[in-house]
Amino acid sequence: MGTERKVNNRRKFFQTSAALVGGTLLYAIIKPFEALAQPKEEELKTDKANLPLWGMGVDLEKCIGCGKCAEACKIENKVPKEPFYFRTWVEQYTVKNDGTVKIESPNGGIGGLKQSVPDEEIFKSFMVPKLCNHCTKAPCVQACPVGATFISPDGVVLVDETYCIGCSYCIQACPYGARFMNPITKVADKCTFCYHRINEGLQPACVEVCPTNARIFGDLRDKESDLVNFLQVNPTQVLKPHLNTHSRVFYNGLSSEVK
């Protein structure tokens, strides 16, 4: 009798533990698939329409290439001061009379851009501020192997500094050269539209300091915003449209020479 109960008990124990282990395994196997299927439903649930959709307009007719934006960005975001790390920078294009194009951006334009081509050789010349284009179909987000860079629900491409493995694949995938490897944090770094500022109701640092208001920042969903007005009034263009990145930085007065 005693032994029988022991056997029974033992059997029960094995059955329960087998069920437990099996159940955990089964759950663990099903769970990832669930996660694969979920995001789409999730998107519908979080009411995205209530969130802003951030974007920027750049009016090239107003930009004077003073480089204040690049300088402010470095200060605000603690970007190393070396001349090869920039979240935003200004390029000066000079189309010469013979049709060749000269592009310059010494130190990203900080300290004001100076024309190096003599006046009589110039056909036309203009400034182009560059920054992360916050693509709707971001190649960098597509490429990141671990999900350390992503498009936030309000449309900003961000980097998860605690999760980035530093493989540089996103840097290779970005057609605009807007990303770099931060030598201090050793993770990919890029423009965040000053995410900490815009969530406090401030403007991004580059927009704040622009003396000619060449940069217009705002909510693309807000029909009353300056940005929407800018897009409605001016014919705008995005950079490298053939790559189908659907970027959210819009340029007014963009010449075909700009790459």
Partner: peptide
């Protein structure tokens, strides 16, 4: 060994991004 954060390499297997060729 080329990763800037080699100790985080395991993340590629833990949370592989399905759209990433590298993952």
């Amino acid at each position: 060994s080329h990763l800037q954060h080699p100790l985080r390499a395991y993340e590629i297997l833990m949370t592989p991004n399905p759209t990433s060729a590298m993952a």
